[in-house]
Design a protein around this nucleic acid. Structure first.
Lengths: 169, 169
DNA sequence: GTTGGAGTGTCAACAACACTGACATAAACT
DNA sequence: AGTTTATGTCAGTGTTGTTGACACTCCAAC
């Protein structure tokens, strides 16, 4: 079994592309993602909510007045799945849904005051961990971190990510 | 709302710690993780398996002869949850479970030949994406990527990750 | 102006996979 | 002998994903 990356583009070592390095990258991603979601998960566990609610709240806060369909594309789930989450959030008064003025088929989504408060709480917890990690790693590492993550996304997601990124740049 | 990181340690700008930068980091993590799991998910969808089976197979392959309890600690799930997965993998002849020689209470887990084949298939798909991302980003970015991910883990996970990393170093 | 197709959202039922709690068994430890 | 440890299992529950069926709205072709 070859431990060296297949077909290196030059005679160079390219040590960072060995299978072992790649496997460590995979495992780092697995463990880090657990840490990444741990704090919001803890907060949400006390309410009747889960990670799906967090994601919905996050992106509604991020792209106010968005439609259900747009949110669907961002989240990458079926509309039925999103709808269940959305229904409870609306019933609990965290999100409000307004029929579109131009196109009455559409529903435009926004956080209520209570929704913004919860969003802030969850986001504070997650940002605190991210901030600590960023600070510990330093600016150069952070830049590399983002470069690799962007390269790891699917084309579609990268476009969505870029679009979101640019709105507040 | 303060857009600057709270209490910077010096008069420096620390631009990489602004709330906006942190939020972009959070979203990058979300989208990248989707890409990260997309390829194995596609393969597994055709079989009767899911992501949980993939994780079990990965870490059994990584830490051969491991015990159930050890695997439990790595995966961070309950034994009931792991057992359901393990039962099907053993029934399907992908994993074999042997009573411990020293301590007969323990079960030692190993991949069978069929298990190794599947592990290789899944891992090839995931590594291909990781390799492409690493190559595109370059060695410095990769180093930063790993530094940030390690800093993002919980203490326990970081220990587990380090232990795994060292076995094959 | 009506009809048909496309777009959008909702309800219902089901599957995967996590959780808790309770309990059984066997081996090891004291 | 009594306790702890390692593992497995049964039953019940919750979150979150899926597909299928259906209702409402818009628009364009007839």
């Amino acid at each position: 079994m070859d431990r060296r990356a297949s077909s290196p583009s030059s005679g160079e070592a390219l040590l960072f592309l060995t299978d072992e390095q790649l496997r460590q990258g995979i495992e780092a991603m697995f463990f880090a993602y657990r840490g990444f979601t741990a704090d919001p998960d803890r907060i949400l566990a006390d309410m009747a909510y889960g990670r799906a609610h967090h994601r919905a709240i996050h992106f509604i806060g991020r792209a106010p007045n968005t439609t259900v369909n747009n949110l669907l594309n961002i989240l990458g789930v079926t509309k039925q799945s999103l709808n269940r989450v959305l229904r409870t959030l609306i019933a609990d008064g965290l999100v409000e849904s307004k029929v579109g003025r131009m196109d009455k088929r559409e529903r435009h989504l926004n956080l209520t005051q209570a929704g913004r408060t919860l969003e802030q709480t969850l986001s504070d917890a997650q940002r605190a961990r991210m901030r600590a990690a960023f600070r510990e790693a330093g600016p150069d590492a952070v830049s590399g971190f983002r470069t690799v993550l962007e390269a790891m996304m699917d084309g579609e997601m990268r476009a969505t990510y870029g679009r979101l990124k640019d709105t507040t740049s």
